[in-house]
């Protein structure tokens, strides 16, 4: 009797693991619209990332030598999709100068592209609550995405419009989205350009705290390739997307 209970306990735990594994393997949910968000497994987006910052103790006036500038090579690799908790999530791994730094899970549903979570190198997943909207199939200039719902007025995403933007990888027609976040005296201005079929081609974050600009972080798309042909970059789309 004593041993049968132990067996029961062991069986219970092994079942829950198997269920979780089976959830993460198969994926059959079709892509919502292949023309807008259609990453290919092994696709690599290479970015040039520039981080300019001053230490929190520094106050105005700032001399140029007090500004710390770092330039990094950022690679964003599409690892493919998988079914997690009944949803087809798209995995992107981010590498800085060749080292894995973090991964993101995207969900493409009902015309919306969301960042729903992140994962670490040992595949530990953390879900964002709430998920963050990145793009929409029918992005209309002047639309305001108020998120999260409990955020103070002024926070959220603003869709500015479709613009032609030139980055080292080429010239793209991209939707510009501007996000302003104000939390306890720390203001974050984020703006990014999202090109359909490609993803984010440029992004700039400005972080203000204690009444000063502290960090300017800029990423620009420098190359597009696949893991099989990592040295060949694709041309930028010439027609408006």
């Amino acid at each position: 009797m004593k041993f049968s209970l132990i067996f029961l306990l062991l069986a219970l735990t092994s079942c829950s693991k198997k269920e979780a594994e089976s959830e993460r393997t198969a994926h059959s949910e079709p892509a919502w619209d292949a023309s807008f968000f259609s990453p290919k497994t092994g696709e690599i987006l290479s970015y040039r990332e520039t981080i300019e910052s001053i230490s929190p103790q520094k106050n105005l006036p700032i001399s140029p030598d007090q500004i710390r500038k770092r330039v990094l090579k950022r690679r964003q690799v599409y690892d493919g999709s998988e079914l997690i908790e009944g949803k087809t999530l798209h995995r992107y791994s981010i590498y800085h100068d060749g080292s894995f730094t973090e991964g993101f899970l995207f969900h493409w549903v009902n015309g919306f592209l969301y960042v729903v979570g992140s994962f670490t190198e040992d595949q530990k997943i953390t879900f964002a609550n709430p998920p963050i909207p990145i793009a929409h199939l029918n992005m209309i200039a002047g639309t305001y995405w108020h998120w999260p719902p409990q955020a103070p007025a002024g926070s959220g995403s603003r869709h500015i419009g479709l613009e032609q933007i030139t980055v080292p990888a080429g010239t793209f027609d991209a939707y510009k989205v501007s996000i302003r976040k104000n939390t306890q005296g720390k203001i974050t201005l984020r703006e990014y350009w999202f090109a359909p079929k490609i993803g984010i081609v440029k992004e700039q974050n400005r972080i203000y705290s204690s009444g000063h600009l502290r960090v300017i972080n800029t990423i620009e798309l420098s190359d597009r390739s696949t893991s099989d042909t990592s040295d060949t970059s694709e041309e930028a789309p010439s027609e408006s997307t």
Binding site: F112, G142, Y144, W145, H146, I160
Partner: peptide
């Protein structure tokens, strides 16, 4: 950016979708 955004400002209909999703 602000002028462009304000001049085309639409009601935040997507907000309700986002809320449902949340």
């Amino acid at each position: 950016d602000s002028l462009v955004f304000f001049s085309q400002f639409k009601s935040a209909t997507i907000q309700s979708l986002t809320k449902n999703r949340n």
